[in-house]
Design a protein around this nucleic acid. Structure first.
Lengths: 461, 461
DNA sequence: CCCTAGGGGTCAAAGGTCTC
DNA sequence: GGAGACCTTTGACCCCTAGG
């Protein structure tokens, strides 16, 4: 140490020369701090709070607040030294570098004050790097424009119907087992809520209408499954539908129970172990929703960015627990898998004539672009058989170069964000009402109704 | 008394201590792993893992004073973590949450420092409350034994055949377009390599044989796709098979090209944009491999832990780039989707009699538990039609309570870890040789051959 | 009985804040 | 923009205890 001593007063003789910015040439090594030891002799008996240390500042003889940077000093000299070193200030003495530095005159010559700081034993090495700020600027995190609060609000808005009926039948044993019709009914409700949910996300509303439709269709089955899994978290061996019906694992319908069992085992169980939070759920849903590989997407890059933002939000919401982010993302493959099985069951039931599939379900879940009430599009039978969310009609057409443009004449009817109340046909307060089949046109805003027939999803937007 | 400082500060903290709801909700005990220890178990050979040596703080690389709260760390990071958890601080990064945290800069961003504490394995549950010592709960089990170096070696061992032929035909234009037979041929090779790869992972070898078979079957199609995607990274609009044939997007076989197009678009492109590294690839493959939801798994929890270790390894390998970990994991759903389509194509081709599917392919890709040369198992036709990796025969039987025990009399022939050279029927040096069909029994180790007929996968183990 | 690892606490001296 | 009174954070250092 004492390297400064070696470079001792060599060049510092002319009075006008500015201090070397890096302070390496300073000769002030003749440290003679007098009162440094006094304080150590003093017992702690002095109850004076702050500048209790009985010493004096070895630079200006003000009351010292302790040792700073190597010298007993006051707060003023401490701050002065730190600022000088941090900003690498180069001061000049206007006189002959012999200025008096005391409590009253210490601000009259910075050059001489700094020189005295060094002489008193302050070392510039003791000044640290700038640190993080302490103050609290509560600004939301997030990379882009997506924010957790918006996502949480969107999520909350789609639950308002349920929560409005306070604690609606919390007793599971009192709930009725869902028939196939009840399941379809619930699915329709949830799909409509999904549309509502999406419309609460401004970034979604700014996409072209075709992209909006494509996104809504792309992973709707996964959203259904994810939603039902989450709703069922508090219960054991039971799936709770949105319309308050239940599906027991060992229910009457083997096809239904099969899917239910997988939901419970592969989704509910891990979700429960993770004890997923609302924020996490909101992010996960958004990640699933903004699917950049969704076929026919015009703004694929935008969607990719949105998904990126969502996954970074999730990462940030989970960083306290190592591995949690990954575990949450790793729920997506099984979710997709279960969703697939659900769609397959649907297809099968429709093929076997066991159920009439509503047009909304047909369009969103089965991926078919049907006009309401119109017949099935011809020529897609084999594709239905080997249905696959991605290889459905849309993508197949795409890959075969048979791209069929989605109807674009409905742009005018798109309501970017629901202004006040959701303008959607509402959820029934009592379950069991088929709110869509045959009864929907009347409930729709007239400007949409005028354009009938249109694919169902378009009418919801 | 010296309480002065604290008593003064009592009222001034509120603006900093913002309530972060997620902060208090984390209790998540089940997945507590300490992969931080993995590196202590492995030689220093891995160049990938920083935080390597045991004497360094895994947060800031200062000298560590021991393990604190679950991570080897210095006193500074220890104190920082305790204070942060105790006071429930919610920090904000002023930049983009990518701050470097090292000895010099660790105080520049508390958000990033705390985040790194968590990522390094610190757990807030380990911070005890004032003077009140709870159980000193030794972390006991759970030590992550998986290491990147082992995974990299396993990966390298399955490439040795290819790299032994130096730069084998780097000119793509000189390569031949694959016929359907060539594709099958390549798939078989790659599946055998997958078995070899798995056998290089000690943790895999310690699993019961039925679990090993189940894992090998579960996501084999995804491994094929992932491998081919990676192999094709350097090329444009072309899929490069393992046996050096190529599949152009606009090839003669529309069914094949369809899958190829998706591979290129949904996998090759993002992988190329990410510029995936060897370590990342190795982790990703392992994550896919250890699929805890795989039907019929006995040691499901063990597999889940292994996957957890793998995903934490990947997280650590990618932490420098924000969002990278998530983007990599988000490749898995499309990978699964493409794999599904591949399997569907296979099913279809077999149904239409366009190709004879080898028994290995049948077992591993189509999920059927067939004895070599035996006829198709009856009664699964409808299930084949709606094939689904999870809902395939095995799971269906399971769910229907028709669990068919896998043959367990082959335990004795299992070779835990390949001692020297892989003891598998080797890859042909020249392509086009069908090494499996009708010609395999002669190539197998005799003790396996004596037990014929057995499912193909068992014989490989 | 002692030793050690990893909990807990302390407080000098860094840092930052904010009004003149 | 600087000065400096005032408050927070950091981390080296030490104590304590259970498990070996």
């Amino acid at each position: 140490m004492k390297i400064s001593g070696t470079s001792l007063g060599l060049t510092t003789t002319d009075c006008i020369v500015t201090l070397d910015p890096s302070y390496t040439l300073l000769e002030f090594d003749s440290l003679r701090e007098l009162p440094a030891e006094t304080e150590s002799l003093m017992p702690e008996s002095t109850p004076v709070l702050r500048q209790a240390s009985g010493g004096l500042c070895s630079i200006c003889a003000d009351r010292a607040t302790g040792k700073h940077y190597g010298a007993s000093s006051c707060d003023g000299c401490k701050g002065f030294f730190r600022r000088s070193v941090r900003k690498n200030h180069a001061y000049t003495c206007r006189f002959s570098r012999q200025c008096v530095v005391d409590k009253d005159k210490r601000n009259q010559c910075r050059y001489c004050r700094l020189r005295k700081c060094f002489r008193a034993g302050m070392r510039k090495e003791a000044v640290q790097n700038e640190r993080d700020r302490i103050s609290c600027r509560r600004d939301g995190q997030g990379v882009g424009t997506l924010s957790i609060s918006v996502l949480l609000q969107a999520e909350a808005s789609t639950h308002q119907y349920l929560s409005s009926t306070p604690l609606m039948n919390c007793d599971i044993t009192a709930k009725k087992i869902a028939s196939v019709g009840d399941v379809f009914e619930s699915m329709k409700q949830q799909l409509l809520l999904l549309v509502e949910w999406a419309k609460r996300i401004p970034e979604f509303c700014e996409l072209p209408v075709d992209d909006r439709v494509a996104l809504l269709r792309a992973h709707s089955a996964e959203h259904l499954i994810l939603g039902v899994a989450r709703r069922s978290l508090p219960y054991n061996n039971i799936i709770l539908l949105g319309n308050d019906f239940i599906i027991p694992v060992s229910g009457p319908e083997p096809e239904v129970s099969k899917v239910a069992a997988r939901i419970l085992e592969e989704l509910v169980r891990p979700l429960r172990e993770l004890d997923i939070t609302d924020s996490e759920f909101a992010c996960l849903k958004t990640i699933i929703f903004f699917a950049p590989d969704c076929p026919g997407l015009e703004r694929s890059q935008t969607v990719r960015r949105l998904r990126f933002q969502a996954q970074v939000l999730l990462d940030e919401a989970t960083f306290e627990q190592r591995g949690r982010f990954g575990e949450l993302l790793l729920l997506l493959p099984p979710l997709q898998s279960v969703a697939w099985q659900l769609v397959e069951q649907l297809q099968l039931m429709r093929l076997l004539g066991q159920a009439s599939v509503d047009s909304l379900l047909q369009e969103m879940l089965l991926g078919e672009n049907v006009a309401r009430g119109a017949a099935l599009q011809p020529g897609s039978n084999s594709e239905v058989l080997m249905f696959n969310q991605h290889a459905g009609p849309a993508l197949s057409r795409d890959l075969l170069g048979e791209h069929v443009a989605l109807p674009c004449n409905f742009t005018s009817v798109i309501l970017p964000v629901p202004s006040s109340l959701p303008g959607v046909p509402l959820l029934p307060t009592q379950t069991g009402t088929d709110l869509y089949t045959h009864g929907q046109e009347e409930n729709m805003p007239t400007e949409i109704a005028n354009n009938l027939p249109v694919p169902a999803v378009h009418t919801c937007l």
